[in-house]
Amino acid sequence: MHDSSFVLCPRGGGTSTFRLFESMMLGRVPVIISDQWVPPKGPDWPSFSLRVREGDLASVPDLLESHKAHARAMGETARAVWLNWFSERASFHRTIEWCLELAIEAPTRTGLERYRPWLQMLRPYHAARAVAKRLGHGASWGPSGPARRIRGAQH
């Protein structure tokens, strides 16, 4: 990653990936490859990142070439955004601000708007996990190693 200007960030188990924030932390331009990624509120994502639909991977070389001249500035912006929005210190304060925002807005929401904070759970990955849990898949999964031995000894 240190030798790259652009970092491919394909979606992970959900709609995003840790690689996105890792590339921002290192001052590299994240190339977000996901059809369902929803940008976190706040930063001006197009100013420092590129977005590619999962079916458009063949366009990536041309896309990178067309942004090559701006890669350094975009990477510097990515680093600044990471520091201001996603670093450990900033994340704590942003999370508190968002919780307060939700608490203030909650009484004013009516109808379907009440469920906006929960709509992310309707995405396919989360829905599949919820169905699997309901059907009992993974019920036997539990702690491993010492925790499993301790739990087994108590029964």
Rank of each mutant, 00 (worst) to 15 (best):
L64A: 12
M74Y: 06
V38F: 14
S4V: 03
I96R: 15
F48Y: 10
N84Y: 01
R28Q: 08
S49D: 01
R28N: 08
F86I: 05
E22Y: 02
D3N: 08
W37R: 11
S47K: 13
R11I: 04
D44Q: 10
S47L: 12
S4M: 09
L20E: 10
L83K: 12
V38W: 13
W82P: 00
S5F: 09
V7Q: 02
T77M: 13
I96A: 15
F86K: 00
T17I: 04
T77F: 00
S4R: 12
S23Q: 02
F21D: 05
G12A: 07
G27T: 11
I96F: 11
D56I: 03
P46I: 11
W82L: 01
S66P: 04
K68Q: 12
L8V: 03
P30W: 01
S16K: 09
E54L: 07
A78I: 01
L26H: 14
C9K: 01
V31N: 02
V29G: 01
S4G: 07
M24Q: 03
E54K: 05
G12V: 09
V7I: 15
T17R: 07
G75W: 03
E97I: 06
N84Q: 12
Q36H: 09
S47F: 09
A69K: 07
P30K: 01
T77S: 11
G75C: 08
L8E: 06
R89E: 15
P10I: 09
F48W: 03
V38C: 13
D3C: 04
R94L: 09
F6L: 06
F18T: 06
I96Q: 14
S47T: 15
H70T: 02
S23L: 02
H70Y: 05
W85R: 07
L8R: 01
T17M: 07
S47P: 12
G27V: 08
A73K: 14
M74A: 11
I96W: 13
G27C: 10
L63E: 04
R72P: 00
P43G: 12
F86D: 05
L26E: 15
S59M: 13
M25T: 00
T77G: 09
G13K: 12
K41C: 08
T95Y: 06
P61K: 04
S4Y: 08
W37V: 04
R53K: 14
D56H: 15
A58S: 14
A71K: 03
S5G: 08
S16H: 10
T15M: 12
P30M: 05
S23I: 00
L50H: 05
P46F: 13
V81W: 00
R11H: 14
